[in-house]
Amino acid sequence: MKRRGIVLLAFAIAGVNLVPLWLVVKQALTPERESFAWPPTWVPHELTLSNFSGAAEAVPLAQGLGLSVGVAVATVISTLALSLPAAWLAARREEVGSRLDGVVVAARLFPTIAIAVPLAVIFVGLGLYNDSSGAGLWLAHTLLGVPFAFLILRAAFRGVPAELEDAAQLDGASPWMTFVRVSLPLVRPSLGAAAMLVFLVSWDEFAYALLLQVTHRTLPPLLFYLSAFGYPGLSSAVAVLMLVPAVVILLLLEPALRSGVLAGSGR
């Protein structure tokens, strides 16, 4: 009897958590006037794809999509390039690791607005503000990606026995070859997880995107303005576009997340 109540409660909570996703998809696929209906509809009365073309007419959607993808991919590359060597070093030298830790945690916890405002002013001077290829936004997003990539990769390199690297070097491999042929392949799963996570961080990012770009906007600010100006259907169509990579990446990451949680519980 009590057990049935617990199961019922779990399903009820799960159901409530699905409501926002359901309503986004519903609004995206029903005509704009249905989104304004009173009382509001919970299931679509009329299905349409017109919101996607409508959103593309209202805002530079294709440009936004291209910018979002471009900035996210560039952010993944720069973040990994900066984090990989530093994470390896931090895993091998505890005294370096603890110092880098402090800096990286500071980057993670410092208020975005206190970096975004001066960065916007600096970028205006450098001509990177509202850059048509999103270069300024890319440089800012790298700052958000670094803490995630650094911490994931350092943990992964800690799992690679130093003896393995020493053995390769004794056999005559250069430090570079040892890293590329021995250490890097062993951390590939974590590298993949870090890359996907950093992609999502950039893809979802809103504050820097709002402050550093005005006419060349990525998807999150476009979605925000469509919603703020009262277009629930059009904004939901953009939201659905944003959801696709987010959901795909999270499904791919789910095993890593699960093993991560299990690793945390094993301690």
């Binding site: 409501v19 926002p20 996703l21 309503l23 999150p220 939201a239």
Partner: peptide, 14 residues
């Protein structure tokens, strides 16, 4: 898991 801006705009509609 939803992008923050997606969750917030739909919550506004709610």
């Amino acid at each position: 898991a939803l992008p923050e801006i997606v969750f917030l705009t739909i919550l506004r509609s709610i």
